[in-house]
Amino acid sequence: MSQHLAIDVTGLVKTFGETRAVAGVDLKVPVGAVYGILGPNGAGKTTTARMLATLLQPDGGEALVMGYDVVKDPDAVRSVVSMTGQFASVDEDLTGIENLVLIARLLGYSWRDARYRGHLLLDAFGLSESADKQVKTYSGGMRRRLDIAASIVITPEVLFLDEPTTGLDPRSRNEVWDIVRALVSAGTTVLLTTQYLDEADQLADRIAVIDHGKVIAEGTPGQLKASVGSGSLKVRLHDPAQRPVAQNLLEQIIGGEVQLESDPAALTSSVLQQHLVPEALGELNRNGIYVTEFSLGQPSLDEVFLTLTGRPAEVESEATEEAA
């Protein structure tokens, strides 16, 4: 069974003084998947990833990566994993190519092969033009790409990406996402920690929502959303005066709660059974109520987090706290 799991974690614990940063985490990550660990800052995501990458000793529980125990056989784990940390793990004084040659050499490449491999990766990550510039002159997105390039000098079986897009602009973020997708198509298992709900939604096959060192929910993005409700229908009417009638009809047919929006022509109905939506729209039309806009949306993972923890994912405020 465990051969099919890239990561198999049971009851993992890490304590820092009085705080239990990780308080009994279980994770089962199948080979070839992108697995997202989602949670606000300080939830224990990074600590979990660092234990799996052999950078931290667990205080309890068991963790296997590709079948190797992180405590008993850390060297074997190191030979199958690669980690891109939260802070760029490249040498700022060195140039891009020097950084990659350094890592390639440490992995056992000859000087010649290391240079070849380095240039190949710089090319693949669109960094060729800056190969001979010091990394301290790179933009945040370039640095992050170089960082990931350094992580895949040897294509790892398991890649840990700790908040890979924190602090990046949207364009660089999309670039990183594309890289992750390419990695997965090449067969690498990716464990991704993130505090961005849409990032987990975009990339992950399965997500573990973690809070206060514990997994509070686990499943596919779809399952997590379904646990909150299946979505909502937004409708905008041609004539605001018809809103009360429309509200009545929607409540009757869809059977969900209907909210009136601040826009006097708009209303939103929660949807439990999606097949009722076309019927409801048809009924509005038959009753002479003209709809100018409608959209059927899935709940966001923000709502998921709110439902699971009873509080919103305070990404911003906690991020500032941790930085301070």
């Binding site: 440490l106 056992g108 000859s110 190949l120 693949a124 990550f125 294509t155 990695l183």
Partner: peptide, 18 residues
Amino acid sequence: ANESLRFALASGTRPSRP
């Protein structure tokens, strides 16, 4: 870019440890 990335990934075989 994607092709060169795929090529880079496919060719990343592990040499023996230094």
